[in-house]
Design a protein around this nucleic acid. Structure first.
Lengths: 222, 222
DNA sequence: CAATAACTTGAGGGAACCCTCAACTTCTAT
DNA sequence: ATAGAAGTTGAGGGTTCCCTCAAGTTATTG
Protein backbone atom coordinates (compact mmCIF):
# COMPACT_ATOMS: atom_id res chain seq x y z
CA UNK A 1 0.00 0.00 0.00
CA UNK A 2 2.76 2.44 0.98
CA UNK A 3 6.21 1.82 -0.56
CA UNK A 4 5.62 -0.83 -3.17
CA UNK A 5 7.63 0.93 -5.87
CA UNK A 6 10.59 -1.43 -5.45
CA UNK A 7 11.30 -3.36 -8.65
CA UNK A 8 10.46 -6.73 -7.10
CA UNK A 9 8.71 -7.71 -3.90
CA UNK A 10 10.98 -7.03 -0.95
CA UNK A 11 13.07 -9.98 0.27
CA UNK A 12 11.80 -11.94 3.23
CA UNK A 13 13.20 -11.26 6.61
CA UNK A 14 16.11 -13.47 7.53
CA UNK A 15 14.37 -15.26 10.40
CA UNK A 16 11.31 -15.88 8.29
CA UNK A 17 13.43 -17.52 5.63
CA UNK A 18 15.06 -19.71 8.23
CA UNK A 19 11.72 -20.75 9.64
CA UNK A 20 10.45 -21.60 6.20
CA UNK A 21 13.44 -23.84 5.65
CA UNK A 22 13.02 -25.50 9.00
CA UNK A 23 9.40 -26.14 8.13
CA UNK A 24 10.26 -27.66 4.79
CA UNK A 25 12.87 -29.92 6.35
CA UNK A 26 10.42 -31.05 8.99
CA UNK A 27 7.79 -31.62 6.33
CA UNK A 28 10.06 -33.87 4.30
CA UNK A 29 10.88 -35.94 7.35
CA UNK A 30 7.43 -36.15 8.83
CA UNK A 31 5.58 -36.84 5.59
CA UNK A 32 8.10 -39.49 4.66
CA UNK A 33 7.84 -41.22 8.00
CA UNK A 34 4.18 -40.88 8.75
CA UNK A 35 2.35 -40.06 5.56
CA UNK A 36 0.55 -37.01 4.28
CA UNK A 37 -2.24 -37.08 6.84
CA UNK A 38 -0.09 -36.44 9.85
CA UNK A 39 -1.38 -33.65 12.12
CA UNK A 40 0.16 -30.34 11.13
CA UNK A 41 1.09 -29.64 14.74
CA UNK A 42 3.56 -32.49 14.45
CA UNK A 43 5.36 -30.72 11.64
CA UNK A 44 5.40 -27.43 13.51
CA UNK A 45 6.71 -29.15 16.60
CA UNK A 46 9.44 -30.92 14.66
CA UNK A 47 10.42 -27.64 13.02
CA UNK A 48 10.51 -25.90 16.36
CA UNK A 49 7.98 -23.24 15.45
CA UNK A 50 4.41 -22.63 16.45
CA UNK A 51 1.40 -23.81 14.54
CA UNK A 52 0.64 -20.19 13.71
CA UNK A 53 3.94 -19.82 11.91
CA UNK A 54 3.32 -22.95 9.97
CA UNK A 55 0.02 -21.54 8.74
CA UNK A 56 1.72 -18.27 8.02
CA UNK A 57 4.11 -19.93 5.58
CA UNK A 58 1.87 -22.70 4.32
CA UNK A 59 -1.80 -21.73 4.48
CA UNK A 60 -2.98 -25.25 3.70
CA UNK A 61 -1.77 -28.82 3.83
CA UNK A 62 -1.64 -28.78 0.05
CA UNK A 63 1.02 -26.11 0.18
CA UNK A 64 3.16 -28.38 2.30
CA UNK A 65 2.53 -31.22 -0.08
CA UNK A 66 3.52 -28.97 -2.94
CA UNK A 67 6.83 -28.45 -1.18
CA UNK A 68 7.17 -32.16 -0.58
CA UNK A 69 6.72 -33.91 -3.87
CA UNK A 70 8.99 -32.23 -6.41
CA UNK A 71 12.09 -33.94 -5.06
CA UNK A 72 10.29 -37.25 -5.19
CA UNK A 73 9.25 -36.78 -8.78
CA UNK A 74 12.75 -35.76 -9.72
CA UNK A 75 14.14 -38.95 -8.21
CA UNK A 76 11.64 -40.96 -10.18
CA UNK A 77 12.69 -39.30 -13.40
CA UNK A 78 16.30 -40.06 -12.65
CA UNK A 79 15.37 -43.66 -12.12
CA UNK A 80 13.66 -43.71 -15.48
CA UNK A 81 16.78 -42.36 -17.11
CA UNK A 82 18.87 -45.04 -15.52
CA UNK A 83 16.38 -47.65 -16.67
CA UNK A 84 16.80 -46.40 -20.22
CA UNK A 85 20.47 -47.27 -20.02
CA UNK A 86 19.76 -50.93 -19.36
CA UNK A 87 18.65 -53.60 -21.76
CA UNK A 88 14.96 -53.09 -22.61
CA UNK A 89 13.30 -55.77 -20.52
CA UNK A 90 15.77 -55.47 -17.66
CA UNK A 91 15.24 -51.72 -17.65
CA UNK A 92 11.49 -52.17 -17.50
CA UNK A 93 11.72 -54.62 -14.62
CA UNK A 94 14.28 -52.57 -12.75
CA UNK A 95 12.21 -49.42 -13.10
CA UNK A 96 9.09 -51.02 -11.68
CA UNK A 97 10.97 -52.57 -8.78
CA UNK A 98 12.59 -49.25 -8.09
CA UNK A 99 9.24 -47.46 -8.02
CA UNK A 100 7.97 -49.97 -5.53
CA UNK A 101 11.04 -49.78 -3.36
CA UNK A 102 10.63 -46.07 -3.07
CA UNK A 103 7.00 -46.45 -2.09
CA UNK A 104 7.94 -49.08 0.43
CA UNK A 105 10.17 -46.78 2.42
CA UNK A 106 8.23 -43.55 2.04
CA UNK A 107 4.72 -43.33 3.36
CA UNK A 108 4.32 -39.83 2.04
CA UNK A 109 5.18 -40.93 -1.44
CA UNK A 110 2.69 -43.74 -1.43
CA UNK A 111 0.02 -41.41 -0.09
CA UNK A 112 0.69 -39.03 -2.95
CA UNK A 113 -0.85 -41.36 -5.45
CA UNK A 114 -4.11 -41.62 -3.65
CA UNK A 115 -4.63 -37.93 -3.25
CA UNK A 116 -5.69 -35.15 -5.52
CA UNK A 117 -2.78 -32.84 -6.12
CA UNK A 118 -2.94 -29.16 -6.99
CA UNK A 119 -2.70 -28.44 -10.69
CA UNK A 120 0.50 -26.42 -10.90
CA UNK A 121 2.62 -25.86 -14.02
CA UNK A 122 5.59 -27.55 -12.35
CA UNK A 123 3.56 -30.65 -11.67
CA UNK A 124 2.23 -30.76 -15.22
CA UNK A 125 5.78 -30.54 -16.45
CA UNK A 126 7.03 -33.24 -14.13
CA UNK A 127 4.21 -35.46 -15.30
CA UNK A 128 5.00 -34.82 -18.92
CA UNK A 129 8.65 -35.65 -18.35
CA UNK A 130 7.79 -38.75 -16.45
CA UNK A 131 5.32 -39.85 -19.10
CA UNK A 132 7.78 -39.30 -21.87
CA UNK A 133 10.39 -41.54 -20.28
CA UNK A 134 7.94 -44.15 -19.16
CA UNK A 135 6.60 -44.42 -22.68
CA UNK A 136 10.09 -44.97 -23.97
CA UNK A 137 10.83 -47.63 -21.41
CA UNK A 138 7.69 -49.43 -22.48
CA UNK A 139 8.15 -48.93 -26.21
CA UNK A 140 11.71 -50.25 -26.10
CA UNK A 141 10.68 -53.38 -24.30
CA UNK A 142 7.87 -53.93 -26.77
CA UNK A 143 10.04 -53.46 -29.87
CA UNK A 144 12.43 -55.86 -28.28
CA UNK A 145 9.69 -58.46 -28.22
CA UNK A 146 9.87 -59.00 -24.47
CA UNK A 147 6.95 -56.86 -23.25
CA UNK A 148 3.46 -57.69 -24.46
CA UNK A 149 2.24 -55.38 -27.19
CA UNK A 150 -1.01 -54.36 -25.53
CA UNK A 151 0.68 -52.88 -22.46
CA UNK A 152 0.18 -49.13 -22.25
CA UNK A 153 1.81 -46.46 -20.10
CA UNK A 154 -1.51 -46.16 -18.34
CA UNK A 155 -1.29 -49.79 -17.33
CA UNK A 156 1.75 -48.87 -15.34
CA UNK A 157 -0.56 -47.09 -12.95
CA UNK A 158 -2.12 -50.44 -12.16
CA UNK A 159 1.25 -51.81 -11.23
CA UNK A 160 1.87 -48.94 -8.86
CA UNK A 161 -1.55 -48.90 -7.30
CA UNK A 162 -1.63 -52.59 -6.72
CA UNK A 163 1.87 -52.70 -5.35
CA UNK A 164 1.17 -49.90 -2.95
CA UNK A 165 -1.73 -51.76 -1.49
CA UNK A 166 0.44 -54.85 -1.00
CA UNK A 167 3.18 -52.75 0.51
CA UNK A 168 0.83 -51.14 2.98
CA UNK A 169 -0.84 -54.39 3.87
CA UNK A 170 2.32 -56.37 4.47
CA UNK A 171 4.70 -53.69 5.74
CA UNK A 172 4.64 -54.89 9.33
CA UNK A 173 4.76 -58.61 8.63
CA UNK A 174 6.74 -59.20 5.45
CA UNK A 175 8.21 -56.01 4.05
CA UNK A 176 9.41 -57.79 0.94
CA UNK A 177 6.15 -59.43 0.00
CA UNK A 178 5.46 -56.90 -2.75
CA UNK A 179 8.36 -58.40 -4.69
CA UNK A 180 6.45 -61.61 -5.06
CA UNK A 181 3.36 -59.81 -6.23
CA UNK A 182 5.40 -57.82 -8.70
CA UNK A 183 6.94 -61.02 -10.00
CA UNK A 184 3.52 -62.47 -10.80
CA UNK A 185 2.54 -59.26 -12.49
CA UNK A 186 5.75 -59.14 -14.51
CA UNK A 187 5.25 -62.69 -15.67
CA UNK A 188 1.90 -61.53 -16.93
CA UNK A 189 3.53 -58.67 -18.80
CA UNK A 190 5.83 -60.78 -20.92
CA UNK A 191 4.96 -61.02 -24.56
CA UNK A 192 5.05 -64.80 -24.31
CA UNK A 193 2.38 -64.75 -21.60
CA UNK A 194 -0.05 -62.49 -23.40
CA UNK A 195 -3.62 -63.53 -23.95
CA UNK A 196 -6.02 -61.02 -25.50
CA UNK A 197 -7.70 -58.72 -22.99
CA UNK A 198 -11.27 -57.62 -23.52
CA UNK A 199 -11.21 -54.55 -21.28
CA UNK A 200 -9.50 -51.63 -23.00
CA UNK A 201 -6.74 -49.63 -21.40
CA UNK A 202 -7.60 -46.41 -19.64
CA UNK A 203 -6.73 -43.32 -21.59
CA UNK A 204 -4.56 -40.60 -20.14
CA UNK A 205 -7.54 -38.40 -19.32
CA UNK A 206 -9.00 -41.10 -17.17
CA UNK A 207 -5.79 -41.72 -15.33
CA UNK A 208 -5.44 -38.03 -14.59
CA UNK A 209 -8.99 -37.82 -13.37
CA UNK A 210 -8.59 -40.87 -11.24
CA UNK A 211 -5.90 -39.90 -8.87
CA UNK A 212 -2.27 -39.35 -9.13
CA UNK A 213 -0.90 -36.14 -10.39
CA UNK A 214 -3.41 -33.61 -11.56
CA UNK A 215 -6.90 -33.22 -10.25
CA UNK A 216 -9.75 -32.91 -12.73
CA UNK A 217 -7.54 -31.06 -15.15
CA UNK A 218 -8.42 -27.46 -14.32
CA UNK A 219 -9.42 -27.54 -10.68
CA UNK A 220 -12.91 -28.22 -9.50
CA UNK A 221 -14.31 -26.33 -6.57
CA UNK A 222 -11.31 -25.28 -4.61
CA UNK B 1 -29.36 -60.28 41.71
CA UNK B 2 -33.01 -61.06 42.46
CA UNK B 3 -34.74 -63.73 40.30
CA UNK B 4 -32.01 -65.20 38.14
CA UNK B 5 -33.05 -68.79 38.73
CA UNK B 6 -34.71 -69.07 35.29
CA UNK B 7 -33.10 -71.84 33.20
CA UNK B 8 -31.86 -69.49 30.47
CA UNK B 9 -31.57 -65.74 30.20
CA UNK B 10 -34.97 -64.16 29.74
CA UNK B 11 -36.06 -63.41 26.16
CA UNK B 12 -35.61 -59.90 24.88
CA UNK B 13 -38.55 -57.58 24.84
CA UNK B 14 -40.43 -57.53 21.57
CA UNK B 15 -39.67 -53.88 20.75
CA UNK B 16 -36.01 -54.36 21.54
CA UNK B 17 -35.86 -57.26 19.12
CA UNK B 18 -37.46 -55.14 16.43
CA UNK B 19 -35.01 -52.34 17.00
CA UNK B 20 -32.12 -54.71 16.79
CA UNK B 21 -33.37 -55.96 13.47
CA UNK B 22 -33.87 -52.45 12.16
CA UNK B 23 -30.34 -51.66 13.21
CA UNK B 24 -28.93 -54.69 11.46
CA UNK B 25 -30.81 -53.88 8.29
CA UNK B 26 -29.58 -50.33 8.37
CA UNK B 27 -26.05 -51.53 9.04
CA UNK B 28 -26.08 -53.82 6.02
CA UNK B 29 -27.25 -51.01 3.79
CA UNK B 30 -25.06 -48.26 5.13
CA UNK B 31 -21.87 -50.29 5.36
CA UNK B 32 -22.40 -51.61 1.86
CA UNK B 33 -22.98 -48.17 0.42
CA UNK B 34 -20.52 -46.10 2.36
CA UNK B 35 -17.97 -48.40 3.93
CA UNK B 36 -17.18 -49.42 7.46
CA UNK B 37 -16.07 -46.00 8.64
CA UNK B 38 -19.38 -44.29 8.24
CA UNK B 39 -20.48 -42.29 11.32
CA UNK B 40 -22.60 -44.43 13.57
CA UNK B 41 -25.23 -41.70 13.77
CA UNK B 42 -25.93 -42.41 10.13
CA UNK B 43 -26.83 -45.99 10.91
CA UNK B 44 -29.01 -44.97 13.84
CA UNK B 45 -30.76 -42.40 11.68
CA UNK B 46 -31.36 -44.90 8.90
CA UNK B 47 -32.73 -47.40 11.39
CA UNK B 48 -35.00 -44.80 12.91
CA UNK B 49 -33.65 -45.12 16.43
CA UNK B 50 -31.47 -42.91 18.56
CA UNK B 51 -27.74 -43.19 18.86
CA UNK B 52 -28.21 -44.34 22.44
CA UNK B 53 -30.19 -47.34 21.29
CA UNK B 54 -27.57 -48.21 18.78
CA UNK B 55 -24.96 -48.25 21.53
CA UNK B 56 -27.28 -50.23 23.70
CA UNK B 57 -27.47 -53.04 21.15
CA UNK B 58 -23.98 -52.72 19.68
CA UNK B 59 -21.51 -51.29 22.19
CA UNK B 60 -18.82 -50.83 19.56
CA UNK B 61 -18.41 -50.50 15.82
CA UNK B 62 -16.85 -53.93 15.81
CA UNK B 63 -20.11 -55.41 17.01
CA UNK B 64 -21.86 -53.91 14.02
CA UNK B 65 -19.15 -55.24 11.77
CA UNK B 66 -19.57 -58.64 13.35
CA UNK B 67 -23.22 -58.49 12.33
CA UNK B 68 -22.27 -57.36 8.85
CA UNK B 69 -19.75 -59.79 7.51
CA UNK B 70 -21.11 -63.31 8.02
CA UNK B 71 -23.50 -63.00 5.10
CA UNK B 72 -20.68 -61.75 2.93
CA UNK B 73 -18.45 -64.65 3.87
CA UNK B 74 -21.23 -67.09 3.21
CA UNK B 75 -21.73 -65.68 -0.27
CA UNK B 76 -18.05 -66.07 -0.94
CA UNK B 77 -18.10 -69.68 0.10
CA UNK B 78 -21.04 -70.32 -2.20
CA UNK B 79 -19.06 -68.77 -5.01
CA UNK B 80 -16.19 -71.07 -4.26
CA UNK B 81 -18.48 -74.05 -4.42
CA UNK B 82 -19.78 -72.95 -7.78
CA UNK B 83 -16.22 -72.48 -8.98
CA UNK B 84 -15.47 -76.06 -8.01
CA UNK B 85 -18.15 -77.21 -10.42
CA UNK B 86 -16.41 -75.62 -13.41
CA UNK B 87 -13.36 -76.80 -15.26
CA UNK B 88 -10.24 -76.16 -13.14
CA UNK B 89 -8.78 -73.10 -14.83
CA UNK B 90 -12.15 -71.60 -15.67
CA UNK B 91 -13.24 -72.10 -12.11
CA UNK B 92 -10.13 -70.39 -10.83
CA UNK B 93 -10.62 -67.42 -13.14
CA UNK B 94 -14.32 -67.17 -12.47
CA UNK B 95 -13.78 -67.23 -8.74
CA UNK B 96 -11.28 -64.42 -8.79
CA UNK B 97 -13.45 -62.28 -11.03
CA UNK B 98 -16.39 -62.95 -8.80
CA UNK B 99 -14.49 -61.90 -5.70
CA UNK B 100 -13.56 -58.67 -7.39
CA UNK B 101 -17.06 -58.00 -8.63
CA UNK B 102 -18.34 -58.29 -5.12
CA UNK B 103 -15.73 -55.87 -3.85
CA UNK B 104 -16.56 -53.48 -6.63
CA UNK B 105 -20.14 -53.05 -5.57
CA UNK B 106 -19.71 -53.23 -1.82
CA UNK B 107 -17.57 -50.69 -0.06
CA UNK B 108 -18.09 -52.38 3.26
CA UNK B 109 -16.78 -55.64 1.91
CA UNK B 110 -13.66 -54.07 0.51
CA UNK B 111 -13.06 -52.26 3.79
CA UNK B 112 -13.28 -55.56 5.63
CA UNK B 113 -9.98 -56.74 4.24
CA UNK B 114 -8.08 -53.74 5.47
CA UNK B 115 -9.33 -53.93 9.01
CA UNK B 116 -8.60 -56.05 12.00
CA UNK B 117 -11.60 -58.21 12.76
CA UNK B 118 -12.55 -59.64 16.14
CA UNK B 119 -11.40 -63.18 16.68
CA UNK B 120 -14.67 -65.06 17.06
CA UNK B 121 -15.20 -68.81 16.64
CA UNK B 122 -17.63 -68.15 13.78
CA UNK B 123 -15.07 -66.14 11.92
CA UNK B 124 -12.38 -68.77 12.44
CA UNK B 125 -14.77 -71.33 11.06
CA UNK B 126 -15.70 -69.22 8.06
CA UNK B 127 -12.03 -68.71 7.36
CA UNK B 128 -11.31 -72.40 7.60
CA UNK B 129 -14.16 -73.20 5.22
CA UNK B 130 -13.07 -70.55 2.82
CA UNK B 131 -9.47 -71.69 2.96
CA UNK B 132 -10.40 -75.28 2.39
CA UNK B 133 -12.31 -74.45 -0.80
CA UNK B 134 -9.78 -71.98 -2.06
CA UNK B 135 -7.03 -74.53 -1.66
CA UNK B 136 -9.04 -76.99 -3.69
CA UNK B 137 -9.69 -74.47 -6.44
CA UNK B 138 -5.97 -73.82 -6.62
CA UNK B 139 -4.87 -77.44 -6.35
CA UNK B 140 -7.24 -78.52 -9.12
CA UNK B 141 -5.94 -75.89 -11.47
CA UNK B 142 -2.38 -76.87 -10.69
CA UNK B 143 -2.92 -80.59 -11.19
CA UNK B 144 -4.58 -79.68 -14.42
CA UNK B 145 -1.37 -78.01 -15.53
CA UNK B 146 -2.96 -74.63 -16.13
CA UNK B 147 -2.03 -72.78 -12.93
CA UNK B 148 1.63 -72.28 -12.09
CA UNK B 149 2.90 -74.68 -9.46
CA UNK B 150 4.31 -72.08 -7.11
CA UNK B 151 0.99 -70.29 -6.58
CA UNK B 152 -0.22 -70.63 -2.99
CA UNK B 153 -3.54 -69.89 -1.36
CA UNK B 154 -1.81 -66.99 0.37
CA UNK B 155 -0.97 -65.50 -2.98
CA UNK B 156 -4.66 -65.15 -3.54
CA UNK B 157 -4.62 -62.42 -0.94
CA UNK B 158 -2.38 -60.43 -3.24
CA UNK B 159 -4.91 -60.69 -6.00
CA UNK B 160 -7.62 -59.38 -3.74
CA UNK B 161 -5.62 -56.60 -2.18
CA UNK B 162 -4.32 -55.36 -5.45
CA UNK B 163 -7.68 -55.52 -7.13
CA UNK B 164 -9.31 -53.61 -4.34
CA UNK B 165 -6.92 -50.78 -4.72
CA UNK B 166 -7.61 -50.62 -8.45
CA UNK B 167 -11.32 -50.79 -7.81
CA UNK B 168 -11.18 -47.94 -5.35
CA UNK B 169 -8.95 -45.84 -7.53
CA UNK B 170 -10.96 -46.20 -10.70
CA UNK B 171 -14.48 -46.54 -9.39
CA UNK B 172 -15.54 -43.08 -10.46
CA UNK B 173 -13.85 -43.05 -13.85
CA UNK B 174 -13.76 -46.57 -15.22
CA UNK B 175 -15.60 -49.01 -12.99
CA UNK B 176 -14.44 -51.95 -15.12
CA UNK B 177 -10.76 -51.17 -15.10
CA UNK B 178 -10.01 -53.83 -12.51
CA UNK B 179 -10.85 -56.45 -15.12
CA UNK B 180 -7.86 -55.39 -17.14
CA UNK B 181 -5.60 -55.54 -14.14
CA UNK B 182 -6.93 -58.95 -13.25
CA UNK B 183 -6.28 -60.11 -16.80
CA UNK B 184 -2.61 -59.18 -16.55
CA UNK B 185 -2.37 -60.91 -13.22
CA UNK B 186 -4.07 -64.04 -14.53
CA UNK B 187 -1.72 -64.20 -17.47
CA UNK B 188 1.05 -64.19 -14.92
CA UNK B 189 -0.58 -67.06 -13.06
CA UNK B 190 -0.60 -69.47 -15.96
CA UNK B 191 1.82 -72.35 -15.74
CA UNK B 192 3.15 -71.42 -19.17
CA UNK B 193 4.06 -67.93 -17.96
CA UNK B 194 5.88 -69.00 -14.83
CA UNK B 195 9.42 -67.86 -14.15
CA UNK B 196 11.00 -68.75 -10.82
CA UNK B 197 10.28 -66.27 -8.05
CA UNK B 198 12.91 -65.52 -5.46
CA UNK B 199 10.63 -64.11 -2.76
CA UNK B 200 8.84 -66.91 -0.91
CA UNK B 201 5.11 -66.97 -0.36
CA UNK B 202 3.73 -65.67 2.89
CA UNK B 203 2.65 -68.36 5.28
CA UNK B 204 -0.82 -68.46 6.74
CA UNK B 205 0.31 -66.95 10.03
CA UNK B 206 1.59 -63.91 8.25
CA UNK B 207 -1.54 -63.46 6.23
CA UNK B 208 -3.63 -63.66 9.37
CA UNK B 209 -1.45 -61.14 11.13
CA UNK B 210 -1.48 -58.83 8.21
CA UNK B 211 -5.06 -57.97 7.88
CA UNK B 212 -8.07 -59.79 6.76
CA UNK B 213 -9.93 -62.07 8.99
CA UNK B 214 -8.38 -62.65 12.39
CA UNK B 215 -6.27 -60.22 14.32
CA UNK B 216 -3.03 -61.39 15.86
CA UNK B 217 -4.43 -64.86 16.45
CA UNK B 218 -5.57 -64.59 20.05
CA UNK B 219 -6.47 -60.96 20.46
CA UNK B 220 -4.01 -58.31 21.49
CA UNK B 221 -5.08 -55.60 23.85
CA UNK B 222 -8.80 -55.32 23.30
C1' DC C 1 18.66 3.77 19.29
C1' DA C 2 14.16 4.36 18.01
C1' DA C 3 10.34 3.45 14.87
C1' DT C 4 7.99 0.46 12.18
C1' DA C 5 7.05 -3.21 9.36
C1' DA C 6 7.48 -8.13 9.46
C1' DC C 7 6.97 -12.06 11.84
C1' DT C 8 5.67 -15.25 15.65
C1' DT C 9 2.84 -17.04 19.20
C1' DG C 10 -0.59 -20.03 21.39
C1' DA C 11 -5.02 -19.79 23.47
C1' DG C 12 -9.30 -20.63 21.83
C1' DG C 13 -13.44 -21.25 18.76
C1' DG C 14 -15.25 -24.63 15.40
C1' DA C 15 -16.31 -29.06 13.34
C1' DA C 16 -16.78 -34.01 13.32
C1' DC C 17 -17.11 -37.85 15.69
C1' DC C 18 -17.16 -40.69 19.86
C1' DC C 19 -19.62 -42.40 23.85
C1' DT C 20 -22.38 -41.91 28.43
C1' DC C 21 -26.06 -41.54 31.55
C1' DA C 22 -30.04 -39.58 34.10
C1' DA C 23 -34.61 -38.96 32.98
C1' DC C 24 -38.23 -40.73 30.46
C1' DT C 25 -41.22 -44.33 27.97
C1' DT C 26 -42.92 -48.87 26.98
C1' DC C 27 -43.53 -53.59 27.56
C1' DT C 28 -44.95 -57.63 30.25
C1' DA C 29 -46.18 -60.48 33.98
C1' DT C 30 -49.10 -60.85 37.66
C1' DA D 1 -54.76 -52.14 36.09
C1' DT D 2 -50.26 -51.63 37.83
C1' DA D 3 -45.56 -52.18 39.38
C1' DG D 4 -41.22 -52.71 37.99
C1' DA D 5 -38.00 -54.36 34.70
C1' DA D 6 -36.42 -53.41 30.20
C1' DG D 7 -35.50 -50.28 26.80
C1' DT D 8 -35.07 -45.60 24.70
C1' DT D 9 -33.65 -40.96 24.29
C1' DG D 10 -30.67 -37.03 23.11
C1' DA D 11 -28.21 -33.38 25.24
C1' DG D 12 -23.73 -32.94 26.56
C1' DG D 13 -18.86 -33.95 27.82
C1' DG D 14 -14.55 -35.79 25.65
C1' DT D 15 -11.21 -36.08 21.92
C1' DT D 16 -8.68 -34.74 17.93
C1' DC D 17 -7.70 -32.01 14.59
C1' DC D 18 -8.51 -27.72 12.02
C1' DC D 19 -7.63 -22.80 11.57
C1' DT D 20 -7.64 -17.67 13.23
C1' DC D 21 -6.24 -13.50 15.24
C1' DA D 22 -5.05 -10.07 18.90
C1' DA D 23 -1.17 -9.36 21.40
C1' DG D 24 3.66 -9.75 21.77
C1' DT D 25 8.46 -10.19 19.71
C1' DT D 26 12.22 -9.39 16.45
C1' DA D 27 14.67 -7.76 12.38
C1' DT D 28 15.83 -3.86 9.63
C1' DT D 29 16.47 0.68 8.32
C1' DG D 30 17.70 5.44 8.90
Amino acid sequence: MSTDATPKARAKRRDAQRNREKLIDATMDVFTERGLDVPLEEIARRAGVSIGTLYNHFPSRDDLIAAFYPAKFAAQIEDADRALECAPWEGFVWYLARLCERQACDRGLSDLLSRRLPDTPELRQACAQSYERTSRIIARAQQDGSLRADFTPQDLTFVIWSSISIIKATAAVAPDAWRRHLAFLLDGCRATAAHPIATPSLDMEQVLKTMPTLGTATAQHE
